[in-house]
Amino acid sequence: MQPLNFVAGDATNPQAKGPKVIAHICNDLGGWGKGFVLAISRRWPEPEREYRRWHRERAGNDFALGAVQMIRVQPDIWVANMVAQRGTKRGSGGPPIRYDAVESCLEAVAEHALAGGASVHVPRIGCGLAGGTWERIEPIVSKTLGARSVATTVYDYG
């Protein structure tokens, strides 16, 4: 079991040696323009471009809740676009976050990280615009990444 490491800082500037995966949550509508994705887009154009293409061509690919798209942005950094948010607004079904999709996504991220010897870096995923709570997300992160000994850093910005 690898405990989660909490630091103050910017998850788009991961503090670790070796290969790194920056994981974040996307919605299932193809929308990109609020929240943590803006910080990603300020650093690299590829994750937004590839996410929009993935959504646009969704009839012929795996774009859906629980799916992950890995985008290499530097020789040692990947961005994981994780589809774990249904829509963008709170409705009768509650907040947009889908905890089961977060778990599926993080399982795929763990596989990628283990295969490449990478650490994983996240903001408090699912707790901003997606409307989730860290009390529900943290155990999922621990179960999918920490329990598999994937070094994981959670960043609190500001």
Rank of each mutant, 00 (worst) to 15 (best):
P139I: 04
A11D: 04
I71R: 05
I97F: 02
V68F: 03
A67V: 05
A23M: 06
E50Q: 14
T153V: 10
S142Y: 06
I140Q: 01
G18R: 12
K89M: 14
E135N: 12
R52G: 06
G158F: 03
E46N: 08
M1Y: 09
C105N: 09
V120I: 08
C105D: 07
D28F: 00
E138N: 03
Y155W: 08
A64S: 13
Q2A: 12
L114K: 10
P139T: 09
L65V: 09
I137L: 13
A84W: 01
A147R: 11
Y155H: 04
S92C: 06
C127M: 09
T144V: 12
Q74F: 04
P19F: 04
G93W: 08
R49T: 15
V109D: 01
A147E: 15
G31K: 10
P14E: 05
E57V: 07
T12Q: 02
G9S: 06
G31A: 13
W78N: 01
F6R: 12
V83P: 00
T88E: 12
G87R: 00
G35P: 06
G31F: 15
P123Y: 02
T88A: 08
A101T: 06
L114P: 01
P19W: 00
R58T: 03
G33M: 05
K17D: 15
Q15R: 14
A39T: 05
P47R: 00
V79M: 03
V37L: 00
Q69I: 00
G132C: 07
T153D: 10
A113Q: 00
A11F: 15
R148F: 06
R52F: 06
R53Q: 13
G126K: 02
